[in-house]
């Protein structure tokens, strides 16, 4: 976006348009869509398997054999959508990014495209955002159809259409941050230390408000970005189970999005330039 380039001395090349970064940006999206189209089946399987098995075991198998808690299927709908979306950001953005930085070094080529370095990072996030939206479209029907007792949903459209994109954005931003901050040798450790606690303690399998019984855990999990998405979706889909106030949900989501994006782009630039 260097508009002043046109006025600089000795410039012989085509001057960059003010929106000149859009073209390479879109070209990178085109490339990512080509790869996604090719990998659609593995992508779907990867996305769907964990939530499917979860609802299958806890809301299909267990009720059939006389075990399990009543109403669990309702609790799981927002929780599993949220955790799948966040998990997707890590699986589909962070891990490939770690590889592109170290083993394949593809990133070094991507930043040679006529796009500012932050533009390359933003493109990665944008595509991850779209992928996360696809994840919602896959997981939502799954967690609704599989349970023996169909979940009772009271959909609040406004909350739904705001929390889902915010959550998808958060997943992309977290993916970027983790992908740029971690080196390949640490990946398995990151899964054990960050990803697992995030998903298990992300108000996925219980409403956050019920954690009142374990006060310290309730406070501690406020550090977990996933909590805000789970609770936001809980408000949007199953409000009768109680959910965090919308102020906290939106505040938490927006703060986490901003912080992860800022950190991710900063780390990205630092890794690329020396």
């Amino acid at each position: 976006m260097t508009t002043e380039a046109a006025a600089s001395p000795g410039l012989r090349a085509r001057p960059t348009l003010p929106m000149g970064f859009l073209q390479p940006f879109m070209a990178m999206m085109e490339r990512d869509f080509r790869v996604l189209k090719r990998d659609m089946v593995p992508f779907m399987v990867r996305t769907a398997m964990q939530p499917f098995l979860f609802v299958f075991v806890f809301t299909y198998v267990q009720p059939k054999i006389g075990a399990g808690a009543p109403g669990f299927q309702d609790v799981l709908v927002p929780g599993l959508i949220a955790s799948s979306v966040i998990f997707q950001g890590i699986q589909a953005v962070a891990i490939p990014l770690v590889m592109e930085f170290s083993q394949t070094r593809e990133i070094e080529d991507r930043v040679m495209a006529p796009l500012p370095v932050w533009g390359v990072a933003l493109q990665k996030m944008t595509f991850a955002f779209l992928q996360s939206m696809i994840v919602v479209a896959v997981v939502f029907p799954l967690v609704y159809i599989v349970p023996v007792n169909t979940p009772k949903l009271h959909i609040s459209i406004l909350a739904l259409i705001t929390v889902i994109p915010l959550g998808a954005f958060l997943s992309a931003a977290m993916g970027l941050l983790i992908g740029t901050a971690v080196n390949p040798r640490q990946i398995t450790l990151v899964f054990a230390l960050i990803v697992m606690p995030l998903t298990f303690l992300g108000a996925v399998y219980y409403p956050w408000s019920q954690l009142e019984a374990i006060r310290w855990l309730q406070v501690l999990t406020l550090l977990n970005p996933l909590v805000y998405m789970s609770e936001g979706l809980r408000g949007a889909l199953t409000p009768e189970y109680g959910h965090m106030s919308y102020w906290a949900v939106y505040g938490g989501l927006i703060f986490c999005c901003a912080a992860c994006t800022w950190g991710g782009i900063r780390m990205f630039s630092k890794r690329v330039l020396s």
Binding site: A5, L11, T16, T104, R105, E106, M112
Partner: peptide
């Protein structure tokens, strides 16, 4: 001053395989 304009007119082959 004009990194994007420069990137547009150069071709770069780095030491590493970045295909």
């Amino acid at each position: 001053a004009h990194q994007q304009d420069v990137k547009r007119i150069i071709g770069v082959v780095t030491q590493f395989n970045t295909l």
